[in-house]
Nucleic acid binder design. Structure first.
Length: 597
DNA sequence: TTTATGTACC
């Protein structure tokens, strides 16, 4: 036991156990305290002390603590609600949150002995935390029913937890419904919904809600006033959408609220600016954080930003400059490796990978396989997969397939395709890559076979789309778009573009088109790729010289990359395209990726 | 003793 906080005799210490509670650190302390509770009979006669002890024990970081807490709970002849809650809370925060739900379900079963404690709002709150952590939608729904049964619908904190839980289970509609049904809200309720929408599939809706919130700022009761957490959620929505306009607006609001010094807000700003294409502003925010205030996440986000923009050398530099007081974690290594990858720094990447101070996970192996694969070191890439201490996932085989395609290795491509089929991947990209390998070797019969398999397997097509922001309005384009209101104009502009860049030597690169169609039709399919439509629209809808920003859901294709370079030269425009993995910045006929991506 | 917050492989 740690020394008693007061000078007391042993007898007095027995009378006052509470002061020791905050001092318990080692597992041995906990066991001694437990023994004291038993020998003084307080385990039974002071239920509130017991519950507070259980709560601390269940939340303690020591591996043996939580099992010990559960043992203690089971040993109680008549556990109180607070005892149960302590265990529910500990389990919900543990690596196995589902056990919290099991405990709750067990307590619900009718059983005369030992008597089941009643559930209260706190029990449900902890259980909802658990169902959120395991993304268990049906459990959240059942807990919602219990909330209604227990009549806790006026408990703002509990209902906020319910909103959060629905959102974390990807049931945004229910999250929204519960939120809308709240008669009293506070800022946490707003934040739970905003964060849920922003990180889920509804970032646009999140921003709408944010505007509604700050628009009625003056009339809101103080408990609903937006705070720094609101800002972080809104910035995360801007980052996901890639809307620099909205991001700048939120940043303005951050300044007005006086939370520009909050490190979490700064980290969110770095991420937002980076994902909206402005690396300069992202780094400005990073450097504005006082050195001693920078957290691991600040470094990770900044390194990730530099990497996404293709500056692998600078990413390595910042990584090396990290203070020794901050230990890099798995995310740091992903960010640095990603930077080496996008910049083609093979040896640096391998050096970083082999020097990792945390165990590499499948994503780290993924970057290394990509790094080696792109550089044409296919055998080493495959050996890396074989050497992994865990099985390869779909993404890893797709990476190897991509590398095999780039370097025309039929055997390895077939192997990767077989693995992908075994793992149940059935997206068009897999087939396109395999077919391209065959096509590059003029093995037309195999190309046809792949196409037949595609047809019979009912392949899932990932529709390609792009969007661009013009005067604060997002315009979305899908491949071969026929819906946009200014379609005629856009298609005319595209024709003009193709003829103008034709003078610079442009010829459509059709090898990425799978379908067995004539050359002219292939060119047609290519010329309406969504990013081309978005760029063409940007050219006619913005004044000369203005930077064009386009966001694409898939990776940019080779032909669009060539076209973007030529447009940047022919029209004197900077074009910034964010694709699935990184940024391409086109200026005067060159791309920041150096044609390596 | 509950609530809401940032970074991640193709």
């Amino acid at each position: 036991m740690p020394p008693a906080p007061a000078t007391a005799t042993a007898a007095a210490a027995v009378l006052h156990l509470e002061p020791f509670l905050p001092c318990l650190t080692t597992f041995s302390h906990y066991k001694q305290f437990h023994a004291q509770l038993i020998t003084s009979a307080r385990l039974y006669f002071e239920p509130s002390l017991r519950a507070r002890f259980l709560d601390r024990l269940a939340l303690s970081a020591h591996a043996a603590a939580l099992p010990h807490a559960l043992l203690l709970l089971r040993s109680l002849p008549s556990p109180a609600t607070n005892d149960l809650n302590a265990a529910l809370r500990g389990l919900a925060a543990s690596p196995h949150p589902a056990r919290s739900l099991l405990l709750l379900a067990g307590r619900l079963l009718p059983s005369p002995s030992p008597p089941r404690p009643r559930l209260d709002a706190l029990s449900l709150s902890f259980a909802l935390k658990a169902s959120a952590r395991c993304s268990d939608g049906p459990a959240t729904l059942q807990l919602h029913a219990l909330v209604l049964c227990l009549g806790c619908t006026a408990d703002v904190r509990l209902i906020t937890t319910l909103v959060d839980s629905y959102a974390k289970c990807d049931d945004l509609a229910s999250a929204r419904n519960v939120f809308d049904g709240m008669t009293v809200r506070d800022v946490a309720s707003w934040n739970a919904l905003l964060a849920g929408l922003a990180q889920g599939t509804e970032p646009t809706l999140a921003l709408k809600l944010f505007h509604r919130l700050v628009g009625s700022f003056r009339e809101l009761p103080p408990r609903e006033a937006p705070n720094e957490v609101t800002m972080v959620a809104a910035l995360s929505a801007c980052a996901q959408i890639g809307s620099l306009q909205d991001g700048l607006y939120v940043h303005e609001f951050v300044r007005k609220m006086g939370v520009s010094g909050n490190v979490r807000v700064c980290n969110a700003l770095i991420d937002m600016y980076s994902k909206c294409g402005s690396l300069a502003r992202a780094l400005e925010v990073f450097h504005s954080i006082k050195r001693e205030d920078r957290t691991l996440v600040s470094y990770n986000t900044a390194i990730q930003a530099i990497s996404m923009h293709g500056h692998g050398g600078d990413a390595l530099k910042l990584f090396d400059e990290m203070p020794t007081s901050i230990e890099p974690d798995e995310v740091t290594y992903i960010a640095v490796l990603c930077g080496c990858n996008h910049a083609g720094l093979v040896d640096d990447g391998l050096r970083v990978f082999h020097g990792m101070r945390v165990p590499p996970n499948v994503k780290h192996y993924g970057t290394v396989v990509d790094l080696l694969g792109r550089a044409g070191r296919l055998a080493e890439a495959y050996d890396t997969i074989k050497s992994m201490p865990f099985p390869a996932d779909i993404v890893l085989w797709q990476t190897l397939l991509g590398a095999s395609k780039t370097h025309g290795d039929v055997e390895l491509a077939e192997l990767a395709a077989t693995k992908l089929a075994e793992l149940g991947s059935n997206v068009d990209g897999d087939y396109v890559l395999l077919s391209n390998v065959y096509a590059s070797k003029a093995r037309w019969a195999d190309v046809g076979r792949v196409r037949d398999t595609m047809r019979s397997n009912d392949v899932r097509k990932v529709p390609g789309f792009s969007y661009t922001e013009i005067s604060g309005v997002m315009h979305k384009f899908i491949n071969g778009d026929k819906e946009h209101p200014r379609l005629q104009e856009i298609y005319r502009a595209l024709e003009e573009i193709v003829s103008r860049i034709g003078e610079l030597g442009y010829e459509p690169e059709t090898s990425n088109v799978l379908h067995d169609i004539g050359e002219e039709e292939k060119q047609y399919a290519l010329s309406y790729h969504s990013e081309k439509l978005a760029i063409a629209f940007g050219l006619i809808a913005t004044p000369p010289g203005e930077t064009l920003r386009v966001i694409k859901n898939l990776r940019i294709c080779g032909d669009c990359h060539v076209v973007a370079k030529l447009i940047s030269k022919a029209y004197g425009r900077v074009i910034i395209i964010r694709d699935r993995a990184r940024f391409h910045r086109f200026e005067d006929g060159q791309c920041s990726c150096g044609d390596y991506w």
